[in-house]
Design a protein around this nucleic acid. Structure first.
Lengths: 339, 339
DNA sequence: CTGAAAGCGCTTACAG
DNA sequence: CTGAAAGCGCTTACAG
């Protein structure tokens, strides 16, 4: 194996000279865009090997008019959830020779707008926005010059498509599972009100209660910000209302961690005293004490679908919604109600 | 605010024509590379605004001979630890107008070598390798054509520098803290033997015991793979040796999570029965039950230093080792020994 | 099948 | 101060 990689500095012209052909011919061989006499092909291939030539993707992009790159804006490059998705995007794009340009929006509108500009300056061929902070109108505007794929919202247009999972149904099933376990007082820690995923999960929670003929008690619903600290605070808040509950459906795992710690602080046992269900199935949820029952998001597959959608848009092909099932992973934070 | 960003398709020539000057002049104004008559400057600036012109970074890169991008290879783009570091890299690079190209090495040599080639094809001006799988020789080879900055190893050369934290000292301090708490039987779960960080942490653990006059019992040292599952297995293994211990220093937080679960399964209480110290201070370590005492790595600052080092190398300036202190964060998984 | 030439969108000596 | 020209490393009609 040769880890030395290729030699920058060697150009297509060097190859042409060495092989005794014109640059055009080398280019054609490289791209398989026309048949070339076998002897020349061999000479060129040898020259390429000897010189360790590797085409300059940048120059090729300029000449061809496309950069073979797509921008990906993440809310927080540091978030544990999105990374799986990023890997999925990277893999699907790679198959078509495209590279993702990952930049972080830092969960901040101004920053995000600035990043879009940066990506445009780099002439990406499309932009993927994971749970963008921009409103629909701004996104629609963006899509006029660049194909867009987004997650976490419902937006369809000629040059924009949203890949969305069925959060509502998954939340319904999670809540329903608690109901089946005999729980009737089920609290919910929701995500931020403006967040679509949060809204859908809340809706699924409500539908399950309704369908089971249970009352929806608004005092049992607290709102967090999708991070641990807010889960902890939301739980404390719930406890302060003095409304009893024996189970909790929490809109994401990070908040569930916070809630779990709040319970630990008050010596409320999980799952004996209260059952817990999260959402996301982060890698560490398998190792919380007790391991967390949660809804698994197909994060990698989502990324893959997003990448595929982008590729199709770039090529002007129609894109359809993929079917990406969410599934309840039952572990040890839930228990049949007993009293 | 205008979220529409700029208009691709508008070229510098369009601006020149509209402003009634030559492209050269527009370029000079854009780059501040020469003084231009005030009236022309104003005309050009107006044209730029009206056309919403944004320079094509790619074309500029081709012309200037540099791409303003540096490649960053991460072991696992999905790892919770590296993301902070990536943000630091991104920020420091951004200040100089550089963009990082993040790619995942997938913790796999062949993949990593492939990624290096991809980055070279994109003509990055340097490559940052976070805990690379390549051996020193391969890295040295790489550095012959591209400046390299690495972490997690000791490597210095004309075009390669390693930014390394003092893991040994931090591990020493963590272990020493346990000793101060009165623990004498302290077990260790080490990282993979080939990993330099792991070696250093093990060395620090050993030095603390030695310095305290405590015996180093090899049966109290288990080896994991830096992920949760291996921490769980390592702890089980430790238990099977039937060597008693009242405290554990674990080479990273993820393994500490696994170990903590193993203890939970056997109803061994933390910290009453055994104290636990991890390494990394992942965001979720503040929310484990109990919150984990651990060594904080300045992950963001490390990334920042790495980015700075790369910039200096690109500019041919000398780079010096930054002073990045690790610190023990005492939380609730450690307790004075009592028996 | 294959070469010479023009062009992608910039920058930068080179001459005024 | 400023324009015309050449060049960065490729690709791709255009003519053989």
């Amino acid at each position: 194996m040769d880890e030395r990689g290729s030699t920058p500095g060697v150009t297509l012209e060097d190859v042409a000279r060495r092989a005794g052909v014109s640059p055009s011919t080398v280019s054609r061989i490289l791209n398989g865009t026309a048949r070339v006499r076998e002897s020349k092909r061999r000479a060129v291939e040898r020259a390429i090997a000897e010189l360790q030539y590797q085409p300059n993707v940048i120059a090729r992009g300029l000449a061809r008019g496309h950069t073979m790159s797509v921008g990906v804006i993440t809310p927080h490059i540091a978030s544990p959830f999105y990374n799986e998705t990023l890997t999925g995007i990277e893999d699907s794009l790679a198959k078509a020779g495209y590279s993702p340009l990952f930049v972080s929006g830092h969960g901040n509108l101004a920053k995000e707008v600035e990043r879009v500009a940066l990506l445009v300056a780099r002439r990406v061929e499309g932009i993927i926005l994971l749970n963008s902070m921009m409103d629909d109108e701004a996104l629609l505007n963006c899509s006029q010059r660049l194909p867009l794929v987004t997650t976490g919202r419902h937006l369809q247009g000629p040059r924009v498509t949203s890949i969305q999972l069925n959060n509502e149904q998954a939340a319904f099933e999670a809540t329903w599972y608690l109901i089946e376990l005999g729980h009737t007082r089920i609290a919910h820690i929701a995500g931020p009100a403006h967040n679509i995923d949060a809204q859908e999960r809340l809706a699924g929670y409500r539908r399950a209660l309704l369908q089971a003929g249970l009352p929806v008690d608004e005092r049992l619903i607290a709102v967090g910000e999708f991070h641990e600290a807010s889960g902890l605070m939301a739980l404390n808040q719930l406890l302060e209302t003095r409304q009893s509950f024996t189970a909790l459906f929490i809109a994401n795992d990070q908040m569930a961690y916070g809630a779990r710690l709040a319970l630990y602080r008050r010596s409320i046992r999980v799952p004996e005293d209260v059952s817990l269900i999260g959402f996301d199935d982060l890698p560490s949820s398998l190792y919380t004490t007790p391991p967390l029952t949660t809804v698994r998001q197909p994060a990698y597959d989502l990324g893959h679908a997003v990448g595929e959608a982008m590729l199709r848009m770039i090529n002007g092909q129609p894109v359809s919604q993929p079917d990406l099932p969410l599934s309840l992973i039952v572990r040890e934070s839930t228990l049949r109600r007993r009293d």
